[in-house]
Write a protein that binds this DNA or RNA. Structure first.
Lengths: 231, 231
DNA sequence: TATAATAAATGTATTTTATACATTAATTAT
DNA sequence: ATAATTAATGTATAAAATACATTTATTATA
């Protein structure tokens, strides 16, 4: 395919490390959380960081992120989307390394809790995060911003809930994403208008005597991209 | 900062080439255009590609993109935003190389036309693009999609117009971005409601006897992010 | 077994925004 | 003076967002 001449042309240029870091969101008891881990190896042993990995030559960046995510949470087929690259020449004091940040939404109760703990990973309230290494706090802030933007024009975040959830739980999730209160009548009306939820014949009575109906999420295929979703 | 032990830890991992490719949009005579260039060197000499460069160790990805953009168009301070990475292990048949795609919006009449031509770069109607090398056509399609999304929730694309422009020109731009006709009464009403344009005491009479008032764009600071911009 | 307590569920009126649509105005060329 | 041409404008209707209070189902307990 390429001639030797062409390969030489490539070789004139610089190579660098490419990493990927995962901003992993979860939602538990009304609180939006982030999975961070306490580094057990150098560099920066003992410091908090996002979960990440160097990208290997044989794998795509996406594959690298999924590899590390599965390794730590036991989950596969997780919703994950590229956020952006962090690419300043001096961002990593060790070597030149760019990082492709990706954010993931996972259902906390689907995770392999022991596996997570065995890797030194911890769930932290998004409003009270520790200082993270390098530019990882920037990544988290940018990911949160992206999540809010995305939620403003399409239903989002169902990946953060268990398979069966109640409308009040879904509302709590939106309140956690936006960090503001939402009117329950308007919220329900809006969500229902999208026709993406199926009401089950089951109730969750853990938070009220009356109980709230459980719903499951329909495939999102029918969603019109231009749907306005201002809540 | 880092110990030798830590440096060894880095060195266990793979390095790769990091490139950046620019999806450069322009707007000329009512037509949305893309700047592509005919490669004068291997690999793929003679083929069309986006304008791009390998990222050097001493520069950020953003700097690399601006370097090549200035080199080819003579422009500085161009609007440019990261689109996403293209990172499949097998995307480049030569060597492992990921590309950070960035899209730029430039005012065609501000470019250095001769410089552009001297680099073999050409403006092509976005609706009739030639086949581009590697995954560059994907990049263009994704960038167009992003541009449309962005335009749906905030005024965008003023960078594609000269400093002074008329409302009909601005409408043409939106029609080119969305590839559909827009009602001129509703368009004007909507644009004016944002309070981002200043009417000048000058008219452009190149397209009508009556002439259309020229406007300039106010700083976008006052824009509310949540502004709905469905046209 | 009646009552209190509690969160879930619902409806309506008002305001804002989007959409659809046709005429008049300013200017130049003839 | 008139014809030709694009720019500029307004209004009525439909759809969506917002603000707001009461009833319902259920359990615990008096």
């Amino acid at each position: 395919m390429t001639t030797d001449w062409e390969k030489d042309w490539y070789k004139e240029h610089d190579k660098m490390y490419v990493a990927t870091d995962c901003i992993i969101f979860g939602f538990d008891k009304g609180i939006l959380k982030l999975l961070v881990f306490k580094r057990r190896v150098a560099p920066q042993k003992g410091a908090y960081s996002l979960i990440g990995s160097f990208v290997q030559l044989k794998e795509s960046v996406t594959e690298a992120a999924k590899r590390v995510l599965t390794e730590i949470t036991g989950l596969e087929n997780v919703f994950m989307e590229e956020l952006r690259t962090y690419n300043l020449a001096e961002r990593d004091p060790g070597y030149r390394c760019i990082s492709v940040a990706q954010y993931a939404l996972i259902s906390i109760d689907a995770q392999d809790k022991e596996l997570v703990e065995s890797h030194g990973a911890e769930w932290h309230d998004i409003r009270q995060l520790p200082a993270l290494v390098l530019d990882h706090n920037d990544m988290v802030n940018d990911a949160l911003k992206r999540l809010r933007e995305k939620a403003s024009y399409q239903p989002v975040g169902f990946e953060l809930l268990p398979d069966k959830f109640t409308i009040p739980q879904l509302q709590q999730l939106y309140e956690a994403i936006y960090q503001k209160e939402i009117d329950p009548r308007n919220f329900r009306k809006k969500i229902m208008s999208f026709d993406i939820l199926t009401r089950l014949d089951e109730k969750d009575k853990s938070t009220s005597k009356r109980g709230a109906y459980l719903y499951s999420f329909n495939s999102r295929q029918k969603l019109n991209f231009n749907t306005k979703f201002n809540i």
